[in-house]
Simulated assay, not measured.
Amino acid sequence: MTNFADLMPRIATALVLVVVGGAAVWAAGPWFAALIAVVCGIMVWELARMIGADQKRSLALGGLSTGALAAAYALPLGLALPLLLAVPMAGIAALHLHRRIFMTFALAILFAGLGLTQHLTNFGLIWMLWLIGVVVASDIAGYFAGRLLGGPKFWPTVSPKKTWSGTVAGWVAAGLVGWAVMGVTTAGIDLIGISVALAMMAQMGDIAESAVKRKMGVKDSSNLLPGHGGLFDRFDAMLGAAVLLFVIESLAEFPPVPA
């Protein structure tokens, strides 16, 4: 029988996240930046706990991350970058084990947070909704296709529940979101490819976090979100997509223009 036992808690928690996140996106500016700073700080705290840091060090690294991202919103980018990089450097000094894991994921969390605030500031509401739509559609399509269609596992030793059917369904859903947004903007067909690439990177973020949890022998990053585990569990996909989008917007014209 198809297992949807976790569906209702996931939906209830997701609705709360949608309300809080939607209000912050709509308010934009310092409200959105503050939410991102707090969420990323909590994820760094969860990361530090997962790799075995004590509560004092975990809280200190999480608080430092929140402060660095809050300052990054208020400061010019050139002055903000050293503050963000200070977090993984502090982790190297404070942690005794798994420093490379902390350094890698803390950097991803911080630069994803920076990328999200800059994305909303520079491109506005419609393009933030597009990004959220790509990640959410990919996740939902993957969840249902994986459970309804089943089939070969994507990477069973790391993420036993993920299937190739769900993975590909996520790509298709993301491409459809890109196609739909093309219809209400002046973006070119490249947007479909970017949407699929973001879905792929979102899936890589999910897989990477699953690999860390498996290595550390933990089921969830924390128990803050019923049905979802921790914030790191819920937003690992968005982290991957946001990092790639930050790179795309830094290197190429965005939104993509028609050919």
Rank of each mutant, 00 (worst) to 15 (best):
N3V: 02
D206Y: 13
V257C: 00
V39L: 14
W31Q: 05
L64S: 04
A70V: 05
I109C: 02
A60F: 14
A199P: 04
G133M: 13
M204N: 12
V218K: 05
L110K: 01
Y73K: 03
M128Q: 13
S159D: 08
D206L: 07
S210H: 01
M8T: 09
A145D: 14
G193Q: 09
D220P: 03
A141H: 04
A112P: 02
S250Y: 02
I109D: 06
L244G: 11
P258H: 06
A68R: 03
Q118F: 03
K219A: 10
K213D: 01
S165E: 08
A141R: 12
F105C: 03
I51P: 02
F102Q: 07
D233Q: 01
A12T: 13
M43H: 04
L244W: 05
V20T: 03
L116Y: 11
H119S: 10
L231H: 06
G240Y: 10
L148F: 10
G193M: 11
R100V: 10
R214S: 07
K213V: 10
F154Y: 08
V44M: 09
G63A: 12
A27E: 07
S138A: 15
G29Y: 09
W45G: 01
A202R: 09
F154S: 03
G205C: 07
V87E: 05
L7S: 04
M201L: 15
A23V: 14
P152E: 05
L61M: 13
L129G: 11
A211S: 10
W45P: 02
I248A: 00
V18E: 06
A34H: 03
A259C: 04
A48L: 11
L245M: 15
V134Y: 08
G78S: 00
N223I: 09
K161N: 14
I109Q: 02
L107S: 14
S159F: 03
F246W: 15
T185C: 10
